[in-house]
Design a protein around this nucleic acid. Structure first.
Lengths: 248, 248
DNA sequence: GCCGGGCCTTGATGCAGATCAACAAAAGGG
DNA sequence: CCCTTTTGTTGATCTGCATCAAGGCCCGGC
């Protein structure tokens, strides 16, 4: 599974984000070593499904590079994305054996996985892991609740602005750690995926993107390359008070 | 703070739900004793605010009786309820000192609280607490994501049916532990609170309640007293595949 | 080169739910 | 008890987004 090329592109971490995020730095070295022994890598191409809702899920893991999405689908086909997993985000649930959502690779994707059972045993022996996971889960819960406001009360234009500002912020933090001047990034989502995240149709997404472009809130080069000349302006369009949104 | 009358009404627990839920049964007795020492009770009347978003929050706790809601508000006044806290649900976040949402008592409310610092120290000493909290937080995350589907993709009628089925299920589980025959309960929410939870206006809520009544999906006696003659029918109206929704 | 299929944009039209408005029914409060 | 306030219902109208439909752009295959 381990693939040198993909690992070479892992962000800000020569090894594996679990070491930085899920397993905290305070853990004893021998525990970290044991974690090394049970970890493995999985690679997916854009569009591939990592796991289907309801399927047996015998691993937990985190995103090394690329983006995965969590989606829920109703019988009649309506779908809602309920989370966007960026590098270092955690997937899976200790203590549950089936997946609650479809997990799909939105871009090419590398994940660092641990078999669930040894990971759980390790959690029992290493309290810091549970505490670190609790912290991460609480962050995700905050992000999910933030998104409930977006879904429930914001207009289509505000929704788009919210999504762009979240991606822009997260992208800038990953790349430079700073949020200054114009922000430039490539949208990792199709219009349809944006629509699924925002509870809109792709036509509405397209129209609002055009409108934000016409109004100078964003610049578009091609369909995906975005420049945000003024982040404060964008956040204003998103209806956020200046501190803005958190990401799933 | 401790109030005999309100404690007498605590559901299924003569003492405090924390003992059952947040602190797991496996914890050593002396740890439980220590937890006893730092706990205290707070009582609120319907409509009172427990804490405002952004305020300093130096406690964590759980609901003993009554219902509290977590709400986010935009500057222009649009509000979205992001969680409904029923008896035994946990509030607060170890490791954060300010509240992220407004917490409001929707009905008369009794909470069992712990000062945050001793609770956090206790968490470090007692690994099972962190693991139990992780489990609870993951449940809440699932519930929040379930709700994202409701907010993003369901029609007004489906939203109402989803809310009713969640309340009915939770209420029945608390009271009898079973989901058989007709379910009867009192709505603990005003039409406005329902609207805030569902991302609708109160007029739409009222209309859809009337429509569901006219169609025989629910029976209404007064404004609050609800009978569900056929739970499967209601869940069908909610657009859920039979297993239905989870609650925040 | 041409063709077919993703992906995206834009236009025309329809409808679910918001908004505005009036009133009914309880629920206090003096 | 009446009066006010809160809460809920129902109607009329408006509007933002969905839906239906047509076509453009780009890329990969033949």
């Amino acid at each position: 599974m381990l693939n040198d090329k993909s690992l070479a592109t892992a962000p800000d971490c020569a090894d594996c984000p679990i070491r930085h995020r899920a397993v905290c730095a305070r853990c004893e070295t021998d525990e970290l070593e044991r974690l090394e022994e049970i970890k493995y890598y999985r690679k997916f191409e854009a569009g591939q499904t990592v796991i289907w809702s309801g399927d047996r899920m015998d691993f937990v893991g985190s995103v090394v590079s690329g983006i995965a999405s969590l989606t829920q689908t109703m019988e009649d086909g309506r779908t809602q994305m309920v989370g966007l997993l960026l590098p270092s985000d955690f997937v899976g649930r200790p203590g549950r054996s089936t997946a609650a959502y479809d997990v799909v690779a939105t871009t090419d994707l590398v994940m660092c996985c641990f078999r669930k059972t040894p990971f759980e045993e390790m959690m029992v022996r290493t309290p810091h892991i549970a505490q670190r996971l609790l912290e991460m889960t609480l962050d995700e819960l905050d992000a999910a609740r933030e998104w409930m406001l977006v879904l429930g009360r914001k207009t289509a234009r505000e929704k788009i602005a919210s999504l762009l500002s979240i991606i822009a912020r997260r992208d800038a933090t990953l790349k430079t750690g700073k949020l200054e001047g114009a922000l430039v990034f490539d949208l990792p989502l199709t219009r349809e995926a944006m629509a699924d995240y925002l509870g809109l149709t792709l036509e509405t997404v397209s129209r609002q993107m055009s409108a934000l472009k016409k109004d100078g809130v964003i610049q578009l080069e091609g369909k995906r390359h975005v420049t945000i000349p003024d982040m404060a302006r964008l956040m204003d369009e998103a209806g956020d008070d200046a501190d803005g949104g958190i990401l799933a």
